[in-house]
Nucleic acid binder design. Structure first.
Lengths: 150, 150
DNA sequence: AGTCCTAATTACGAAAAATGCAGAATAATA
DNA sequence: TATTATTCTGCATTTTTCGTAATTAGGACT
């Protein structure tokens, strides 16, 4: 999988501003042909460099309780716990981390009851969890997906 | 801003699988006209229900150090600190939380040096920060954007 | 029921974009 | 320089989007 060159990064730069930009428009901006942009975008998609998605506002679709949960796990059980967490639709993000918590996850719930059920039933059932540290989001200041620095 | 009905949620359900689906395709799937899908998508975009974006793999664009940082702030200075954090390109997410940390942020860096600079220079300069708890991502298990549960 | 009003849906032609490929240009290697 | 592989361009075809007008559906009210 070849490395990205300057033009690839510029294409990503335009797309991160607006995922709906057309090949044609980007081609005009970069003064190359439409086919060039198309080839490069398809290659990057194939290589998993990026994907076209939608970003929904959780609150607007009824997911009003957003949390970040730090989990300490018993040695050797981290991976298995992470895989179990993966399977929950409510869980948006799971990662293994160095630092205070072994695993950190982000999850969205309709309401507090659903969160409490998740923590007290689903998490409580899992073997190998030492401790759980729940942080409930009170206010969101930033949630952006444009992290190419030009 | 009206509430979303069943068809809106179905449209979001299709788009969350693939942000490139066409009006035409979704229309066929839901057995309505293309114009209906277009009208509804445009209304949801106007209302901020969702947006079309790309999701880049940080590692594939050279951002190999991903962190979650918890920050404890002095009373009354949280908002101002959050706004300062917003301005950093490296910072992808900032929220105010209940729990152990007042603010939690997610950020991506090219390398450890850039992370260290951010923590020891940028964060250290900010007034009102009591403590900082850096967790470095070792492995990502899940990072998905499909959180409509059907 | 019937009328009025509003919002949602459909229909359709025109413009724009995506797609599939062939051929030209470019770069890389021997 | 010749050769090969890769990238880029140009163009015809198909598909999608877009603008808009006509139609339909659903209330609210008499």
């Amino acid at each position: 999988m070849g490395k990205l060159d300057e033009m690839d990064m510029e294409i990503l730069g335009f797309l991160q501003e607006n995922g709906k930009r057309s090949y044609t428009e980007i081609a005009k901006l970069l003064k190359v042909s439409e086919g060039t942009i198309r080839t490069r975008i398809n290659r990057m998609l194939k290589d998993g460099v990026f994907e076209f998605i939608i970003h929904m506002d959780p609150n607007k679709i009824g997911l009003n309780v957003q949390v970040i949960i730090g989990i300490s796990t018993k040695l050797g059980q981290q991976e298995q716990i992470a895989r179990t967490l993966n399977q929950f639709q409510e869980v948006r993000f799971v990662g293994a981390f160095s630092g205070r918590h072994d695993l950190i996850l982000q999850a969205y719930f309709k309401n507090n009851d659903d969160l409490v059920d998740f923590v007290n039933k689903d998490l409580a059932k899992m073997d190998g969890i030492i401790s759980v540290d729940v942080s409930i989001e009170l206010k969101q200041y930033k949630d952006c997906f444009s992290y190419i620095i030009e």
